[in-house]
Amino acid sequence: MKYLIATMFALIFTACGDNTTTPLLKDIISLTINDTNITMHSTDAPKTITATVTYTDGSTADATTSILWTSTDSDVLKTSLGELTPGISNGGNVTIQATYEQYGDSTTATISKLTDYNASFPDINATGTYVFQAYGNFDNGDTNVSIFSNIVWSADNSAVIDVTNNIASITLYAGDTNVTATVFGDTNTSSPIAPQSKIYTIN
Rank of each mutant, 00 (worst) to 15 (best):
7 T>V: 14
10 A>S: 15
14 T>H: 07
16 C>A: 14
17 G>N: 11
18 D>F: 02
20 T>G: 10
20 T>M: 03
21 T>M: 00
23 P>M: 06
23 P>Y: 12
28 I>W: 07
29 I>Q: 10
32 T>L: 11
32 T>C: 05
35 D>W: 00
38 I>L: 10
44 D>I: 04
46 P>R: 12
46 P>K: 09
47 K>E: 10
48 T>H: 05
49 I>S: 05
52 T>F: 09
54 T>S: 03
55 Y>N: 03
56 T>E: 00
57 D>W: 01
58 G>L: 08
58 G>I: 09
59 S>N: 10
60 T>A: 02
65 T>R: 14
65 T>E: 15
66 S>W: 04
67 I>Y: 06
68 L>P: 00
68 L>Y: 02
68 L>K: 12
71 S>M: 02
72 T>W: 08
72 T>H: 09
73 D>I: 05
73 D>A: 07
74 S>G: 03
76 V>A: 05
77 L>W: 02
79 T>W: 04
80 S>C: 03
80 S>H: 00
84 L>I: 07
84 L>K: 07
85 T>L: 13
86 P>F: 01
88 I>R: 06
88 I>G: 01
90 N>Q: 04
91 G>T: 08
93 N>F: 11
94 V>N: 09
94 V>R: 08
94 V>C: 10
95 T>A: 12
95 T>S: 14
97 Q>L: 11
97 Q>P: 00
98 A>M: 05
99 T>R: 15
101 E>R: 15
104 G>W: 01
105 D>W: 09
106 S>A: 14
106 S>V: 10
107 T>Q: 13
107 T>L: 13
108 T>G: 11
109 A>Y: 14
110 T>H: 13
110 T>D: 10
110 T>E: 12
112 S>D: 08
113 K>Y: 07
114 L>Q: 04
114 L>R: 02
116 D>W: 03
116 D>L: 02
117 Y>P: 13
118 N>W: 01
118 N>M: 13
118 N>R: 12
124 I>Q: 05
126 A>H: 14
127 T>M: 04
128 G>D: 07
129 T>D: 06
129 T>Q: 13
130 Y>W: 06
132 F>D: 10
133 Q>R: 15
136 G>P: 11
137 N>W: 01
138 F>D: 00
138 F>N: 00
140 N>I: 04
143 T>C: 10
144 N>H: 06
146 S>K: 12
147 I>A: 09
150 N>H: 04
151 I>Q: 07
151 I>V: 15
152 V>K: 12
153 W>G: 05
153 W>V: 07
153 W>F: 06
155 A>N: 05
157 N>K: 07
157 N>A: 06
157 N>G: 08
158 S>I: 01
162 D>K: 14
163 V>W: 01
165 N>M: 09
166 N>Q: 15
168 A>S: 14
170 I>Y: 01
170 I>W: 03
170 I>C: 03
170 I>S: 01
171 T>V: 03
172 L>W: 06
173 Y>L: 06
176 D>A: 07
177 T>H: 04
179 V>A: 01
182 T>H: 00
182 T>N: 15
184 F>L: 08
186 D>V: 08
187 T>W: 02
190 S>I: 09
191 S>N: 15
193 I>Y: 12
195 P>F: 07
195 P>K: 06
198 K>C: 00
198 K>I: 04
199 I>H: 01
199 I>L: 12
199 I>V: 15
200 Y>W: 02
202 I>F: 05
202 I>V: 07
